[in-house]
Design a protein around this nucleic acid. Structure first.
Lengths: 347, 347
DNA sequence: ACAATATCTTAAATCGGTTCAAATTTATGG
DNA sequence: CCATAAATTTGAACCGATTTAAGATATTGT
């Protein structure tokens, strides 16, 4: 088996306490013994057992991150940000996928609590779900940060400012001279879709455009949802919009496909704007203009906040809510002219 | 603080050993006391401390997964597969990003060893790197599975069968009547690129086509690498290929972009095939034909193998190497006809 | 040189579980 | 009813670290 602190102590002819002192560089151990023991530790390649340490210290140095699906670029980039910050702090990250299933979300949280992780970052199920497990976290003062609001629960939160993002996108379309701007919503359960709708409406209002109910259509989150709505738009010629703002990029691509198939040109006839900028937009022949989520930054900031909560211990203070700026990524589906050279994304 | 096994024991009026027996449903504890204690556990919402458990059992129920960058769709899908299998086994997964940096890879492995994770799945740096840390794992009989070969180290491995994948893609191009088929390589350090080149060559050979050195060009892994090579191809008209097989999808998209910009039509003038099928191909206007990596399956199988290694304990047996089948995903850049009413019209 | 301090080291308790030989209780059969 | 076997339960050691009061050594001032 691996070396233990006792082995090192015996070899060095000191007590375990002294070795422990060296490991945690306590100032009370003399420089001489410290160096001597350090040398021994190195020589025998001794690696302190973090499990034993965690038990004694009552902290694991591990946090949990629960997302719906790590293979979704949005979440994986969030994860990257989380891991980045945590890595710097010496924390490890356990990832759990809820797959949008309540049972799995609960099971993951329970397991992570048993593992005594120091804190949790959770992208929770939202509307209509039983959220007692989250409420419990709060009651137990377990450090955690949410990546999406849960109605009825006041907790630390980090997310993109959807409303402003949507507002800016819509305003951009208006400034380009578009008059009949449509919005394709996300799935019913997505609060973010409601907020984006709200930003969209505010922009119309500000510029004196009258919202047309026919232009707000329930969509979804997949390409085919957008495609379907695109066909719908085309069927009623009189009200066909000259610009479409979409819940996300997949929907935007779907709606574009429907348009293009029917000879409707993007952006000449209809401009299109997506949301998320989740990796695809830049690869399209006609680059997709989209509201970029600061996904990496969401990950980073939520991790930083979580670290704060963990350090604070006595977190009696009020939860902080952080709304990060989106960035309108202008490409060819509206705004930018098609250029003769590749626009190479940095990153 | 949270309840401990001692608290439950006291409440139930039994010893800690008995409660422990209940938790691990040992057959020696009577049904009656078992039910009674179970009720108490539920009532007080007692959650056993997995840290203490890990210390006593000398196993953590955690595994480590080290990839280059979790925000890369290929790796995030692998991660999904790993987490899926591990979840079923009650294992948690710690993810570490090496960012292609040797230091980080080593640091992650070291930390995970200190955390006494039960095993590791590693996508390692390859060519030219110091791999002693991996060799050490083997020496210490630490259970681990690699997702890419390391020259000189015999270890358990799960990866896609690049060579066969490349062979099939190339053969497909040949069967479509293409005669001058090019290959754009990946970065120098990628062993996978060499294997794909080899598959490509075998296919040419099998069908009696003479390989042309001008058609194998060093590329890279980014869109702009492909774009650059595309321009190169175009500059020497006489040797311009009528089909290009690319190291990955990004390169394929880059080369397509170069072609399209110069009025060369895909697939009519030049067919293009990518590799990976990492999420983008299906979203393009002209769907990208590509060799799909079984990423999820790679994750699943590597996790399954790791679980085996962990269970086996005495893993004196020979490492197993698993090469998973790729799948040629035929879309419009070669092979499939564009679906829908509109054919590929110039804009 | 000696008492008073300042430095360093250690023994033992603790964290919250598991394990197993030994002790206790219950069941069986003659 | 008692001896014996079978079924349960328990006490104490253990996993590998940290922590702190107390003990040991070294240093200082006079």
């Amino acid at each position: 088996m691996a070396m233990t602190i006792a082995d090192i102590a015996k070899i060095a002819g000191v007590s375990r306490a002294t070795v422990s002192g060296v490991l945690n560089n306590s100032p009370t151990v003399s420089a001489k013994t410290k160096d001597r023991i350090l040398a021994i530790i190195k020589k025998y390649d001794y690696r302190p057992n973090e499990i034993a340490r965690a038990l004694a210290l009552n902290q694991t140095g591990i946090i949990g991150l629960i997302v719906k699906d790590i293979s979704n670029p949005l979440y994986s980039e969030i994860a990257l940000g989380v891991e980045d910050v945590c890595g710097q702090e010496g924390l490890s990250v356990i990832i759990g996928n809820s797959h949008k299933e309540w049972d799995r979300e609960v099971a993951h949280i329970n397991l992570l609590k048993r593992r005594r992780v120091d804190g949790l970052i959770i992208f929770p199920l939202q509307k209509g779900a039983d959220v007692r497990h989250i409420a419990d976290l709060k009651k137990e003062k377990y450090p955690f940060v949410l990546l999406a609001e849960i109605p009825g629960i006041e907790a630390d939160l980090v997310r993109a400012d959807d409303e402003v993002g949507a507002f800016q996108a819509t305003e951009h379309l208006i400034n380009l001279g578009r008059k009949r701007i449509g919005y394709i919503t996300g799935p019913q359960s997505a609060l973010a879709s409601d907020r984006r709708l709200s930003g969209y409406r505010k922009a119309l209002k500000k510029h004196g455009l009258v919202p047309n109910d026919k232009h707000v259509i329930r969509g979804g989150w997949r390409l085919k949802d957008g495609y379907k709505v695109g066909k719908e738009f085309l069927s009623c010629e009189t009200t066909c919009p000259d610009a479409v703002f979409c819940y996300n990029d997949s929907v935007a691509i779907g709606v574009m496909r429907a348009f293009v198939e029917n000879g409707v040109r993007v952006p000449q006839d209809v401009a299109v704007v997506g949301f998320d900028d989740a990796g695809v937009g830049a690869y399209l022949e006609t680059g997709l203009t989209t509201v970029a989520q600061p996904a990496m930054e969401i990950g980073r900031r939520s991790a930083m906040r979580l670290v704060e909560l963990i350090r604070l211990k006595d977190n009696a203070q009020k939860p902080k809510k952080l709304y990060l700026q989106t960035k309108l990524q202008i490409r060819e589906t509206c705004g930018a002219n098609k250029k003769g050279s590749v626009s190479v994304q940095k990153k």
